[in-house]
Design a protein around this nucleic acid. Structure first.
Length: 344
DNA sequence: CGTCCACGGGAATTGATGGACT
DNA sequence: AGTCCATCAATTCCCGTGGACG
């Protein structure tokens, strides 16, 4: 019953975007100057996860490229590439393509991009609030014709630690707020994905609205649930997803995401996770003490605090309970801890 | 008030790597 | 080929601030 599994991938970009017309218009407005050969307005998209921010950004760039041939564009996930150098390197790769030295200094990278950028270009900075070195925004501003689309969960002040005289010249022309999808919009999205990726009649209206209801306005979760449901059904030899499987599919999809996340943790993060799995609700100092025992090459508390702990929190694996100053670390609950499905 | 704890700025160190110079 | 220097990422070390609490 699964005709095309790629339809359910996180990076799948549908041919038309459901329920985000006004957002699309704002972003394409921001990019419009490129059509006349000028630098676009920087813009900033914010809202919770799974509400189509990245999709809209990518779709807007795609639309632009249908109007204007070969607009140089780059995509950077600042969560992975959070240093100045890493960001510039990624941009150089996407924008300029081809050969760049294995390691290059930031200055060299800026030169490389500047020299090879002919006409205006646009960079998508996903999870831009995770950027450690906001100086890079200044670097981008220095490159003629380059503009960016920043994406974040909350509205953040990106320019906090930049020189005021400089920041006043870097402007964010558009701020686009994304709110949660309604259930009917999620249902519409699911319906289209099903039509594209599954056999005919694989889902009925009832199943779709059930998934939509259970996924709390998060399209990513809904789509993952649809994929899991389809897989479960086809394993039973069915050509349609029966509604009795929906609930399991939603929770399994949740577990799947979690397992995938855990498998990406490094040894330090893993050790922390293990410690918390054994003993929940520790304060930072206790957590560190346990971690130090468990890990055979521990890093300092300072470093843990700076990198690994925030990472676990960001991954939504660890929850921090603040009770009058003292903070306690907890694992985030899973609905079905007793069983998790084999990995994808 | 003194202590404990969390937070985070900032300097310093280490190790890899690549380029320039000899 | 060998030496030296610059850059960068990762990590550590040191420390001041500030809240909570007894």
């Amino acid at each position: 019953m699964i005709r095309d599994g790629t339809v359910f991938d996180d990076d799948h970009l549908p041919t038309s975007i459901v329920g985000r017309n006004s957002h699309m218009n704002e972003v394409t407005d921001a990019l419009a100057p490129i059509q006349d050969g000028f630098r676009a307005e920087n813009c900033f998209l914010f809202g919770p996860s799974g509400v189509g921010k990245t999709t809209v950004a990518r779709a807007a760039v795609r639309e632009l490229r249908q109007e204007v041939l070969d607009v140089p564009h780059a995509y950077v996930n600042c969560w992975q590439d959070y240093t100045r150098n890493a960001v510039l390197e990624q941009i150089a790769r996407d924008l300029v393509g081809a050969a760049l030295p294995r390691t290059a200094s930031t200055g060299r990278l800026v030169d490389l991009i500047t020299d090879n950028l002919h006409g205006p270009g646009v960079v998508i900075l996903d999870e831009v609030d995770q950027l450690r070195e906001t100086k890079v925004l200044y670097d981008l501003h220095e490159i003629r014709g380059l503009s960016w689309i920043g994406i974040a969960n909350r509205e953040v002040d990106l320019f906090a630690d930049l020189d005021d005289r400089i920041t006043s010249r870097i402007s964010v022309g558009y701020r686009v707020h994304f709110d949660s999808y309604g259930e009917d919009t999620i249902a519409e999205i699911l319906d289209r994905r099903a039509r594209e990726g599954l056999g005919p009649g694989a889902v009925n209206e009832d199943v779709v609205s059930q998934i939509a209801r259970l996924s709390e306005g998060d399209a990513r979760r809904a789509i993952a649930a649809l994929r899991v449901g389809a897989r479960m059904a086809s394993r039973e030899g069915l050509s349609a997803i029966p509604s009795r499987l929906v609930e399991d599919a939603v929770t399994d999809a949740k577990c799947e995401v979690r397992q995938k996340t855990i498998s990406k943790l490094n040894t330090h993060q893993h050790a922390l996770y293990e410690v918390l799995a054994e003993e929940d609700g520790l304060i930072q100092k206790e957590l560190y003490a346990r971690y130090e025992e468990v890990h055979d090459d521990p890093v300092t508390l300072r470093y843990l605090r700076e990198n690994h702990l925030p990472k676990l929190e960001h991954y939504n694996l660890v929850d921090i309970e603040r009770h009058r100053g003292t903070k306690r670390y907890h694992l985030v609950d899973v609905d079905h801890p007793e069983q998790h499905p084999e990995h994808v």
